Computed example of a mutant assay.
Amino acid sequence: MFRFRAARAGARFVSGAMIFAVGTGLMLHLGHVLFRELRQVRRSAGTAQGALLRPLPARIDGLATAAAQLSADRGAAVGGDLYDVIATEHGVRVVIGDVRGHGIGAVGTVAAVLGCFREAVHDEVELAGVLRRLDSALARHLRRQATTGPDADTTVIEDFVTVLLLEIRRDGELRALNCGHPWPYLLGEGRAQPLTGADPLPPLGLFPLPSELPLVDCGRLRPGEALFLHTDGVTDARDDHGGFFPLPTALAEAVRDRPSSPQSVLRAVFTQLLRHTRGRPADDVAMLVLCNDRRPSHAPVGARGTARPATTNRQPTTNL
């Protein structure tokens, strides 16, 4: 009897060991498969980001550039922020925007807006025409999502995008259209100040655009001056005590008492932001710095931040 029980106990032990070994092998195999799939997803996300937020050249038609983007989703290479800078016959045209939401779910909207912008900036003579094209493209995308997308049963049509459009002529003349986006900061001579205090329009997707768009004349971007553009993920970033990120202070520190390249300004602000949030921003973050490296112009400088109708006809600006 004792030998029988011992043999039965030994058999159970051997069976248990075999089950444990097989289970461990299956778990290791499953973990390997999941890791491989996760790596493939991240690689695909990186490819998508490269196609959407293309790396900017160091210089674009006399403007030195630097840009950085960080998704709030851990491990994601894409988010809901967008930007691009394109040289056209109408001047250098810039877009920066912020899609409602973040991470992979916002990528489709980012693609729709950026794809339209990259065509419209070459086709449209006036900046107002570019904005209307973006509004139409966004509306088509949201209608399609509302009827055929994975969230077809939800009110996708309520999604929106903040958009800032800038146009920088060869003589530095600077004009803007703003739909609910933070205004840039003007950097120069050791100072950082808001470019303008003009009231923006509502974000795209919430209301129809007005018949006349308030094009804002921001004066001229002088040689040596720079613009710091950002999404609200920068100013809304909080520390452990709930304090907002002090962007004006960070910019002032970045340009104080020393020549500052776009890369050095971007690096300084980005480092302070990560320190402020302990490396865990709650929202997507995008920053863009544009510095005028063109030859000085003796043309008179206009007032900054004056809104006027976009339908006003303007003579082409003389190139330097």
Rank of each mutant, 00 (worst) to 15 (best):
V121N: 08
T162P: 00
E158R: 11
V113C: 13
H141Q: 13
I157W: 00
R144C: 07
V113Y: 06
H122G: 14
A137H: 08
C116T: 11
D151G: 05
H122V: 06
D153I: 00
R140I: 12
R144H: 13
R133M: 07
A139Y: 10
R140N: 14
I157Q: 13
C116Q: 14
L131D: 06
V161R: 08
R143I: 08
T109C: 11
L142D: 09
L127E: 04
V156S: 03
L134H: 02
A120G: 12
V161I: 10
R118G: 11
V161C: 13
G115P: 09
G108D: 06
A111E: 07
V156F: 02
D135I: 04
A112C: 05
L164W: 03
V125A: 15
V110E: 05
G105C: 04
L134G: 09
E124V: 03
A106I: 08
T109V: 15
L142S: 06
A128E: 11
E119R: 13
V110G: 03
V110L: 07
T109M: 13
A120M: 02
L166W: 06
I168K: 04
L131W: 00
E124C: 11
R144Q: 11
T148Q: 13
V161W: 01
E158A: 14
H122W: 04
E126Y: 00
L164Y: 10
H141R: 15
R144V: 06
R118F: 02
G149N: 12
R140S: 15
L131Q: 05
V163D: 04
I157Y: 01
V113N: 04
E124P: 01
D159C: 05
L164R: 02
G115N: 02
G129C: 04
L131G: 04
D123N: 01
G115V: 04
D135N: 08
R132P: 12
L165W: 01
V125T: 15
H141C: 14
G115A: 03
D151P: 00
D151W: 07
D153H: 07
L138T: 11
D135W: 02
E126V: 09
A111I: 00
A106K: 04
A120W: 07
D123M: 03
T154A: 12
H141S: 12
R118E: 08
H141I: 08
T154S: 12
L166H: 11
A106V: 09
G108N: 05
G129T: 10
D123W: 01
D159Q: 07
R133S: 14
I168L: 15
V113K: 05
T109N: 01
R144P: 00
R133V: 10
F117W: 06
D153R: 09
E119H: 12
Q145P: 00
D123L: 10
E126H: 09
L138W: 10
